[in-house]
């Protein structure tokens, strides 16, 4: 898989914050005030309703990751910051798009792509299709590029969300071989 320039300059932070009014504004304000750039941002409640999880993809050409983490950590409502290594994390992003499919041929081709990408058709109009796919950023970029020839009427992508990879080998069992971490 090729790595885009975008991923070279970015890091993914998973930030656990207190679920209080204004927390997102504090984070956004910090980034704008310090000149840090956000590539993408996703906010959602967590398993514990006192906290929310914010996944931030930050541009580290604007500041060092250490400085970004240290400044974020100073926000009183930020409880924990996890810097995810792309090699050892599972990342997902969701894409939804409405496409022109005026002819049966176009419609057939789009549905083929949907099958290849393990995407799905969400809604069908008389001359349009609405599709969605979830996956890595690269996979979504590829899907979007392939769809573009059909005329994209509307397209939305969520920010990236991510979790650390799970341990593959039970650490209590002694192994001769070094534990390996697979792709996903």
């Amino acid at each position: 898989m090729t790595t885009t320039a975008r991923t070279d300059d970015t890091r993914t932070l998973v930030v656990r914050v207190e679920n209080k009014a204004g927390v997102l504004a504090r984070i956004a304000g910090l980034f704008s005030r310090r000149g840090f750039n956000i590539e993408s941002l996703a906010v959602a409640p967590t398993e514990d309703d006192r906290f929310s999880r914010i996944t931030i993809v930050v541009d580290v050409s604007s500041a060092t990751i250490d400085q970004i983490v240290a400044q974020l950590d100073k926000l009183i409502n930020v409880v924990q910051i996890q810097l995810l290594d792309p090699k050892t994390s599972v990342e997902r992003e969701l894409l939804m798009a409405t496409l022109d499919a005026p002819t049966p041929v176009a419609r057939r081709e789009i549905i083929d792509l949907v099958q290849i990408f393990d995407a799905s058709v969400l809604n069908v109009g008389f001359d349009q299709l609405m599709v969605s796919v979830a996956g890595s950023q690269q996979r979504l970029d590829d899907f979007e590029a392939l769809l573009s020839r059909y005329g994209i009427t509307e397209l939305q992508r969520t920010g990236k969300i991510a979790l650390s990879q799970l341990v593959k080998v039970d650490p209590t069992i002694e192994q001769n071989n070094k534990p390996t971490t697979g792709e996903n």
């Binding site: 009014a21 204004g22 504004a25 504090r26 304000g29 910090l30 005030r33 009183i76």
Partner: peptide
Amino acid sequence: TTGITMSATKHNFL
């Protein structure tokens, strides 16, 4: 007030 003073305080509360 909390919005305006967000970047002028260590922390603020409403």
